[in-house]
């Protein structure tokens, strides 16, 4: 009878030592969480509530759960919505086109000039966004050198043909707004691209060449997929703020280039229709979240190292 008892003793393991509870991680989370609750969650709730109130600033607002505000806002301002997405998408595509070669050069070839070039990329941030955008009014002015060059090279004709401008003038056009967005958000594209291209192991590029990949194939099969985290990061950092931007469309555009940010701005501050403005803000957020979620899923970055 002793044998089964001995077996039993062997198989009953001692209870695992109680894991010591540590509260430190939660304590470290606390300041950030508190900040977000106060400055993100509370305003969001206030905004949501505002969008469902009726009234006016003088006589006050009442919570009426008036969902019709959303439908009215959408039916009135959907062209601005669509335009915002299209302009932001075009600007994002252009920044990617401009930033990728630059970031690649900085990360892989610039050597000791790397830091200097990085400073140059960040340099525009030393002046305000508004001032930089106003400067574009001067750059694109009708009798300026840029407009002159566009005319002599027939670039302005191309822009007209693409319906980005309506006449010889570059200012106050779709072109000007998209160019302004592209310029203003370029650093947000360059920096994440630079970070991911800097980590790119040059030996992988050599290995691809060793395995019969031409430089072009090497780019599409190795460099581009490995830089995707930077591409996704850069496009998000560009697209999201560009879609809600209201400075570029106001300072460089015309009445036909109004973007949704500009609408929200004027609904809040000029017309003072707070409910419509809040509803538009909420819908813009929703649209961006849906687009971004779809995009990130498609890019499949979770599989990347």
């Amino acid at each position: 009878m002793a044998a089964p008892l001995a077996e039993l003793e062997v198989t009953t393991a001692p209870p695992p030592p109680r894991a010591r509870r540590s509260y430190t991680p939660y304590l470290l989370l606390l300041p950030g969480l508190a900040w977000l609750v106060v400055f993100f969650v509370v305003p969001m709730v206030a905004l949501a509530s505002q969008s469902l109130q009726t009234g006016d600033p003088e006589s006050g607002y009442v919570q009426t759960w008036h969902f019709q505000t959303y439908l009215d806002a959408l039916s009135q301002f959907w062209p601005q919505f669509v335009r915002s997405i299209v302009f932001a998408g075009a600007a994002t595509f252009l920044t990617l086109l401009l930033a990728y070669p630059l970031a690649y050069f900085m990360a892989q070839k610039a050597g000791r000039w790397k830091n200097f070039l990085l400073v140059l990329v960040i340099a525009p941030f030393f002046t305000s966004f508004l001032i930089r955008t106003l400067a574009w009014q001067i750059i694109l002015t009708d009798n300026g050198p840029v407009a002159g060059l566009a005319r002599t090279t027939h670039f302005s004709d191309l822009l007209q043909w693409l319906q980005l401008t309506s006449n010889d003038s570059l200012m106050n056009s779709r072109f000007a707004v998209i160019a302004g967005l592209t310029y203003n958000f370029l650093p947000f594209m360059i920096l994440p691209l630079y970070a991911s291209l800097e980590r790119l192991d040059h030996r992988l590029v050599e290995a691809a060449g060793d395995l019969y990949a031409t430089p072009i194939k090497t780019f599409w099969r190795v460099t581009w997929p490995l830089s995707l985290p930077g591409v996704v990061g850069g496009t998000l950092l560009t697209f999201i703020p560009a879609a809600g931007d209201f400075i570029n469309s106001r300072l460089l555009g015309n009445t036909q280039t109004v973007m949704i940010g500009q609408v929200i701005d004027s609904e809040f501050l000029r017309i003072q229709d707070y409910s419509t403005a809040a509803a538009l803000s909420f819908m813009l957020m929703l649209v961006i979240v849906v687009i971004v979620a779809f995009y990130v899923r498609r890019a499949g970055t979770e599989e990347l190292v």
Binding site: R203, A207, A208, D210, R221, L226, V305
Partner: peptide
Amino acid sequence: FQSYALFPH
């Protein structure tokens, strides 16, 4: 290659 240089993706 000494580092193997396998494509991580």
